[in-house]
Design a protein around this nucleic acid. Structure first.
Lengths: 342, 342
DNA sequence: TTGTACGCGTTATCAC
DNA sequence: GTGATAACGCGTACAA
């Protein structure tokens, strides 16, 4: 069943059927209605390959999540939530979502090639890519629009991206700790090669500086966005007696809570802890995490919309979308009730 | 850059280039090498739309996860892990993955239509679909192969699927509790309209019956695969004084642990708890969960491979793949060390 | 072993 | 407002 068949049944030409389907105004109202009836009756849908062949549009966008599957599926609802947002955004605009998961390491060169040479997508979204990632080099050569999620480490001014104001958010978190009277505030960072992690570190430093507190290298522990980094991080920090820790992610904070328990420390009495993200575990831990909430799902949705706007020419890149964050005060920081900030 | 351009540069005809690309044996070795050189030099890749138009293959498979996004991204690594498996399976066979997330409720009729009429996929995989789901009616009419993950409630003998032997697995779990001396063993079920949940209930009953224990309706609580079902479930069970609970999923079990704490019960002394899945939280809870491990990622991988085998004619449906489970004994059941079973 | 010619289903560009 | 007709890029009988 194709345009020709529909045309025959309707007693018109193929072109007219095509016009009807594509809402071309130059069609007689009666003709239009008759053709639609037959299309519906036959449950006809134009062949997307044939259409793509001539329009050069597939109405498919790619999503690349270059982190290891480990991080993706480990108890970390960040990426699933992001995916849900991307799903919403693309669905609303009638696009489909092609998913590329994996490390895309140099060893996985083949996958990188497959993605960059794949002409089945009208554009791609790349989430949380590390600065030295081999895929980065490919981006400028891609033939379709790209939207990054989180601030890219390279080509920042040439790429479109969606993120939050990580510096301000981190400042907010650390200032909260300072207001609570904490003075030896430590920081466990996220992956050193991810822009957002760097910005959170910067915000941490800014807040200390503004408050006239020293920036102590021994209180800054380079980590990753996982539980272990939190657990090991606190153990490293213990000799330096921090009275608070700002963790670059909630999973890190969960690891800190565990290590504190094992070390006989009480949170928040002996140690305040603040996380980042406000993923599910934050409200299910004991004590419940005070954290910086970022609108993860919305990041996905905005990124999808931006990409499609770029594809369809409604927007021109590079565009930078910065979403707001919010401090969610729970029990791990020592303030039993939300404090007014700033 | 297309076949014609490559052909000109190589001094051959378009057909020869096509043959080279498609590994047709009827090509002179020298010609082949010369053509390949130019293809590589130009980084040429055939237009997938044009190719799909004539081969009627897109090398794309769809994945439909019809649960609400809520369940998908809530602290439940089941679906992300499944997705990772699907990703591996499709990637290895050079297929791409089109993702369809969402409830697909009757209200979302539009999405159901989009999926079932979408000709961009060579086949689809559907995960954990409820029996009364409106999408079920569409399946027999789909023009491409379908593989279900988990036992489908409808058309079971006509559909291909991948799952574990839930009945045997549940029996194993309950028998373990019986061996530990538990006699008032309760069960909190998964979604009543999901085949796997029904099978786990059946296994629970089988084990009791074999041991000569009564099946008490008040000890069977209909639930869902989430934390609340566990929390509320235990509260409902409390008056009936269970000494053990077999939960149809780990998230349910986590809810039970929480409710037990709140009710002043000690697990496992007052109450044994066994979960199902062995997702991350199982080994991170306190006490650590004894649970039935199912190979989630492998389910995804097998499903992807089966689907592609069906697409490419290497297999004919319906096929049923049943993967093994394993009892993982930790601390929530009361056996400090693994017991020999059966 | 290679080239010619046609078809895949659609959109776009002309005439009329 | 409508209908031919020419692309779009590729695969493949069939002929050579």
């Amino acid at each position: 069943m194709n345009l020709e068949d529909i045309a025959k049944k309707a007693g018109v030409s193929r072109s007219t059927v095509s016009r009807v389907i594509n809402d071309d105004p130059n069609v007689n109202a009666l003709t239009r209605e008759k053709v639609w009836q037959i299309i519906r009756a036959e449950n006809f849908h134009p062949n997307p390959s044939a259409r793509a062949l001539v329009t050069r549009r597939t109405e498919i966008v790619g999503v690349v999540i270059p982190t290891s599957e480990n991080i993706f599926f480990t108890d970390n609802s960040y990426f699933p939530q992001l995916l849900a947002g991307l799903n919403y955004g693309t669905r609303d605009l009638e696009y489909a979502l092609l998913l590329w998961l994996g490390e895309l390491t140099a060893a996985d060169d083949n996958l990188i090639r497959r993605i960059s040479n794949n002409r089945q997508m009208d554009g791609i979204i790349i989430a949380s890519m590390e600065g030295h990632h081999p895929f980065f080099a490919m981006i400028p050569r891609l033939r379709y629009p790209v939207v990054m999620i989180d601030r890219p480490m390279l080509y920042e001014d040439r790429l479109s991206y969606v993120t939050v104001d990580n510096i301000a958010a981190a400042e907010m978190a650390v200032e909260h700790l300072i207001k609570l009277g904490r003075r030896r505030i430590a920081h466990i960072t996220g992956h050193p090669n991810i822009g957002d992690a760097q910005d959170r570190l910067q915000g941490y430093k800014n807040a200390l500086q503004r408050a006239g507190l020293p920036i102590l290298p021994e209180l800054i522990i380079p980590g990753h966005f996982n539980r272990n980094a939190g657990y090991d991080g606190l153990r490293q920090l213990l000799p330096h007696k921090p009275d608070a820790i700002f963790a670059a992610g909630d999973t890190i904070a969960i690891g800190i809570l565990q290590a504190a328990r094992d070390a006989g420390l009480t949170v928040p009495d002996d140690l305040s802890v603040i996380g980042f993200d406000d993923i599910d575990v934050a409200s299910q831990s004991f004590p419940m995490l005070t954290t910086v909430r970022q609108p993860v799902q919305q990041k996905g949705e905005k990124a999808a919309r931006l990409l499609i706007d770029l594809i369809e020419g409604r927007a021109i890149g590079p565009q930078h979308i910065i979403l707001p964050t919010e401090l969610v005060v729970r029990h791990s920081c020592g303030a039993s009730s939300p404090l007014p900030l700033r």
